[in-house]
Amino acid sequence: MQDIHRLLPAAFEGWHYELVYKSIRHIYFRIYPDKKIVRISAPHQISPKTLEYAILAKSAWLTNKITTANHVVQPYKPISAMTDSCSCMVWGKKLPVVRKAFKSRPGICLTTESEITIRVPSGYDAKKEEKLWQRWLRSLLNERIQTLLEKWQPVMGVVAAECRLKKMKTRWGSCNTSVRRIWINAVLVHLDPCLLEYVLVHELAHLEEPGHTQRFYQIIETYLPDWKSREIRLKQIALRQ
């Protein structure tokens, strides 16, 4: 492999470069913020001089992209193996988790605004506990969504046939206008509630205007005048996990 590091911008802390030769016709530069990798894919037959020119031409672009990626916030997600000292992000707040031995049915609850209590028998199976956390987080999200639907549907004059949850890698929400079904990203339970509200209003607006037209954004502006600031906050969160 050719020594390309002398041509590239100094790698930021934790980042590294990869040069991969493939059966392709052009050179491609890809940034992977989650892995902190810059991957350069080049044709097998490329000459060292051509590769050098291409890398030098992309130097400023790479520096800008890596700098931007370093400031992207990763989404909060629950820890699979909960421990006495762990915490969990709920509605944008990092709350301590208090574990209590309990012989009856396992459960999780927000005992106060600043603490989560989990009650499970001693030695409770880790996989079962992870499922318990997932069910609890989904119940919190579904409850908040229902409250928001009751608030916004009458105001906007639209009704969703159903609203479901799922983990999505590229979207915070989606709307199937033909069947009037809305999907909400389950990760939103870990973020500020105002971001969930924006996503839901955004998808409800699609029931009136399917495309991202000027009229669509006028609808959003009518109900959420600060929608742009909420959208910017969501764009600063990397969905890929």
Rank of each mutant, 00 (worst) to 15 (best):
F102R: 05
T68K: 11
S114R: 14
T50C: 01
Y28E: 14
E203A: 11
I66T: 10
I31V: 15
A69V: 07
P78E: 09
A60L: 07
E52C: 03
I40N: 01
V158L: 11
L7W: 13
S178T: 15
F12D: 02
E113P: 07
L137Q: 05
H190C: 14
I232Y: 14
S41A: 10
T177S: 13
A101D: 07
T50L: 07
W91N: 09
E52R: 10
C163A: 10
T50F: 04
T63A: 08
P121Y: 06
L195F: 00
E113H: 10
L188I: 06
K49E: 12
R164A: 08
A101K: 07
Q45I: 06
I237F: 09
E18D: 05
V120P: 01
A205G: 15
I220P: 02
A126L: 11
L224K: 01
L200N: 00
H206I: 03
R30C: 13
V189E: 04
R25G: 05
R39Q: 13
K35V: 06
V159Y: 14
V155W: 06
K131D: 10
V90A: 04
K22G: 06
A57F: 07
T83V: 09
R105W: 06
S229C: 07
L204S: 00
Y223G: 04
E130I: 01
R240C: 07
F102W: 11
A60Y: 03
I46N: 02
A160M: 01
I40S: 05
W227I: 02
Q74E: 06
Q45F: 09
L148M: 15
W61C: 12
C88T: 08
R6K: 13
H206D: 00
P106E: 06
Q134L: 08
Q214M: 15
N176E: 04
L62R: 03
H206C: 06
S122Q: 09
D192V: 11
F102T: 00
D192R: 08
E231V: 03
Y198F: 14
W15V: 12
R99Y: 13
E143D: 14
S41G: 04
E197D: 05
A161I: 00
G173E: 08
L137A: 03
K35N: 07
E208M: 14
M89L: 08
A160L: 03
P75N: 06
P75A: 11
P96V: 05
I24E: 05
L191W: 05
V120K: 01
C86Q: 04
Q241F: 13
I116Y: 04
T83C: 09
Y223F: 15
C109N: 07
V73F: 14
V189D: 02
E208Y: 10
G92A: 08
L110F: 00
K127V: 13
M168W: 07
K36Y: 02
R30V: 11
R39K: 13
L140S: 10
I145Y: 04
